[in-house]
């Protein structure tokens, strides 16, 4: 029975593994850390799986456990390079190289997102995943109004990082 449950779980996770990869992409910045976090999320998902009742979608449930692991449960390993705090000096140099091509802009954008704090990253992540404010607020445990307010602040913050 347990084996059967486990294989069913792995099957579902394999199908939706991109969700986990995407969380890792935002919360880590090298391949080792990516794998570490992926593994920890997998462990946490498996542990919580017996309580998954199927009244929510497997993928929706994954978002919650995935973010919880990235924000709260995961301990940064030594290999992981810390996400830098907002560093103006670095960005002034980057801004000079600023090129209007889309690719260049995207590079800067991802770098800027990596500089956000854990909660802000979660907002950006859910936004990129087309989640509405109701789901965002439920995942984070804040009100819908505050989720909107915070999202606007994050947008502003990103603009400031990109155009200092």
């Amino acid at each position: 029975m347990n084996k059967e449950l486990e294989h069913r779980f792995v099957e579902q996770l394999q199908k939706h593994q991109n969700i986990v990869h995407k969380v890792c992409r935002l919360y880590t910045n090298n391949a080792d850390a990516h794998n570490d976090l992926f593994q920890e999320i997998t462990i946490q998902l498996w542990r919580a799986y017996p309580k998954f009742r199927g009244d929510s979608k497997f993928s929706t449930w994954m978002y919650r456990v995935g973010l919880n692991t990235a924000i709260t449960l995961y301990r940064k390993s030594k290999r992981r390079i810390n996400t830098q705090e907002f560093n103006t000096v670095e960005f002034k140099i980057k801004a000079e190289e600023y090129d209007d091509t889309e690719e260049q802009q995207l590079k800067l954008l991802y770098k800027a997102v990596h500089q956000l704090n854990d909660i802000e990253k979660a907002l950006v992540f859910l936004y990129l995943e087309d989640k509405d404010y109701r789901e965002i607020s439920q995942t984070l445990g804040i009100t819908e109004v505050n989720a909107r307010v915070k999202m606007n602040r994050v947008k502003k913050k990103l603009k400031t990082i990109l155009n200092p």
Binding site: Q14, Q39, T42, W46, Q105, L109, V124, L162
Partner: peptide, 29 residues
């Protein structure tokens, strides 16, 4: 909008993520 640009790319990147096998995930659990 910056985030809209990011969203477009985010969706495009979907196919580039590594694809772990059943066995690999099983081991992780």
């Amino acid at each position: 909008d910056e985030l809209e640009l990011l969203k477009k790319d985010w969706k495009n990147a979907e196919k580039h993520y590594p694809s772990l096998s059943h066995d690999e995930i099983y081991k992780m659990t």
